[in-house]
Write a protein that binds this DNA or RNA. Structure first.
Lengths: 207, 207
DNA sequence: CGAAAACCTGACATTATTGTCAAGTAATTT
DNA sequence: AAATTACTTGACAATAATGTCAGGTTTTCG
């Protein structure tokens, strides 16, 4: 019998702690989450958490690092060498898929912004700006080529970002409106289709 | 000298408490807000708050009532007897105006949904569904008249709702992306224009 | 194997938070 | 202006949260 994957103790425990923490922070925010709850949730004695992290803030910022890393992923679909129609559609699908499979991280991050991004370091904010600027350049490129109507790229991204985010952050409300107990994979497909259709072709244009 | 408006003590104090509370709840959520902070913020001794409200939960639910009352307001623009193009544009503008002038309430409510709508009573949820259903009927009406492309009204509303909401809830992030210190009235106009343009005419359709 | 390093944890002191109460002051009514 | 009702507040007991530490156990490595 091979020894179990035998993840290094340190790595495995930090993982357990962060996993419990992201759920609690997403549900209750930084100030609302007690270290004791995190400990209870992940089945480790409270004092043990202090062995791995200096404080609650330490746990929180470790999570931010982790989530920021996922920020650019979906954005990679917005590339000059693709046709805008396809690229935008792919972005919407990718972003919704992220919302569906990472809704906890998504809510955690939303919570952080909502309360004023107190723990978002300057470098994170700069990074997000830079990544967005870069993709905005692509949109402008498409516009210059006449492939896209002359929209403001930033408001455009905000629109895509918020619409796709909604299904993670306010999934609860979306489910209510769609009269579902919970959002299903199908609801996400429906959302992707509706968002793409509206953004690409509008709802009011002569067809 | 006329006596000051002499608002009834009860009304005035409850108002003070709720005003301080909505700011704190928006920033820290229910669990993260201490009764003592609310007291400090509104300059009343802590014990006095217990005279007006039974508990922290009492304050919180009073606020929910208040915010729910604003939910339908902007929706009233979506009426069968208006042209969809105008109605939708008016809705977007009204909703953004609400985001701009009531961003705290907006964030408070977002926070509540984000953490699972634990305090949103059944009747509130039913109300929101019903109001949305009603407006969805209008959208379907427009579609039947051929005035609107056949979009799913619920996803359509979610899109409008989330995009306009964004500028309140994530105003901090939006400001960052637009390279502003804070969002100005102008940024909101820009948003209204961009959102309307994209939703109505799409960004990719032949023009 | 034996020493060093890594990890675990119960207990503690400190400080916060909660909701209540009794005794006070101010406003209103008759 | 007396009585009633409304409002205010400092103090209290009970409970909960935080971060630290000393001494224990387990793992790793030479």
């Amino acid at each position: 019998m091979g020894k179990p994957p035998e993840a290094r103790i340190r790595a495995r425990n930090k993982e357990r702690i962060l996993d419990a923490a992201v759920h609690l922070f997403a549900a209750k925010g930084f100030d609302g989450t007690r270290i004791g709850e995190i400990a209870e949730q992940c089945g480790l004695p409270r004092a043990n958490l202090y062995y791995y992290f200096a404080s609650k803030e330490g746990i929180y910022t470790a999570l931010i690092e982790q989530v920021i890393a996922g920020w650019d992923r979906a954005f990679e679909h917005i590339r000059e060498d693709r046709e805008p129609r396809e690229a935008i559609e792919a972005y919407v699908i990718a972003k919704l898929e992220y919302s569906r499979t990472h809704s906890v991280e998504s809510r955690f991050f939303a919570n952080e912004i909502l309360r004023g991004a107190k723990f978002l370091a300057q470098r994170h904010r700069r990074h997000m700006r830079e990544v967005t600027d870069q993709r905005a350049e692509t949109v402008n490129h498409w516009i210059r080529q006449g492939k896209l109507a002359p929209v403001d790229p930033y408001h455009f991204f905000i629109m895509l970002w918020s619409a796709t985010q909604f299904y993670a952050d306010y999934g609860f409300l979306a489910a209510d409106l769609l009269r579902k107990k919970r959002l299903t994979r199908n609801d996400f497909s429906g959302a992707a289709e509706a968002i793409s259709a509206i953004v690409l072709d509008g709802c009011c244009s002569a067809r």
